[in-house]
Amino acid sequence: MDILRCKTPSMIRKEIHIYLLAYNLLRSLMWSAGTTYNTPPNRLSLQGTRHHLINFIPELLAATSTKRQRIYRTLLKVIAHKPVSDRPARSEPRVRKRRPKAYPLMTKPRHELRNQLQTA
């Protein structure tokens, strides 16, 4: 069994489409929750929405259509309950964290380099 199967371009395209669908589903839930409960949708947490949706999916699947509406309203209320605080002037600099080392690259096997150090 080959764990690292080569994916075809059409499979990669399908995966990207699925991720975009999931992202848009979460954003539409955030929009619905924000507009329903008078919370700015851009202040709601994307990951919090994802977490709450995952927790509510079993209840939504098991419910009848009338109960599903109540569960959906509860989901929206939970999503809108705790907005993310405003963080003005937040910026993330585009820098590299690791500094290059002053040592040369290891171009020989470790045991040969060890022998060189011991004889020097």
Rank of each mutant, 00 (worst) to 15 (best):
E92Y: 10
N55A: 15
P58T: 12
T74F: 01
R70N: 09
P83D: 00
E92Q: 11
T64W: 01
A63I: 02
S65L: 13
L53E: 07
S65M: 11
E59S: 15
V84E: 06
A63Q: 06
H52Q: 12
T64N: 15
V95L: 11
L60I: 13
L53A: 08
D86F: 08
R68L: 01
S65C: 05
R94Y: 04
T66N: 13
R90I: 07
L76H: 06
L61P: 00
H51N: 14
H51E: 14
A62N: 13
F56Y: 13
L53V: 10
D86W: 05
P83K: 01
P93S: 04
H81V: 00
V78D: 03
R90S: 04
E59W: 09
T64H: 10
F56W: 06
P58Q: 10
V84H: 01
I54D: 14
V78R: 05
L60N: 12
A80R: 05
T64Q: 12
L60D: 09
K67E: 14
R70E: 12
R94F: 05
A89I: 00
L53F: 15
P93W: 05
P88D: 01
P58M: 11
K67R: 12
T64Y: 10
R94S: 06
P83M: 02
Q69G: 01
S65H: 11
H51S: 15
P58Y: 10
T66C: 05
K77C: 09
D86K: 06
L75D: 03
S65Y: 09
T64C: 12
S65F: 03
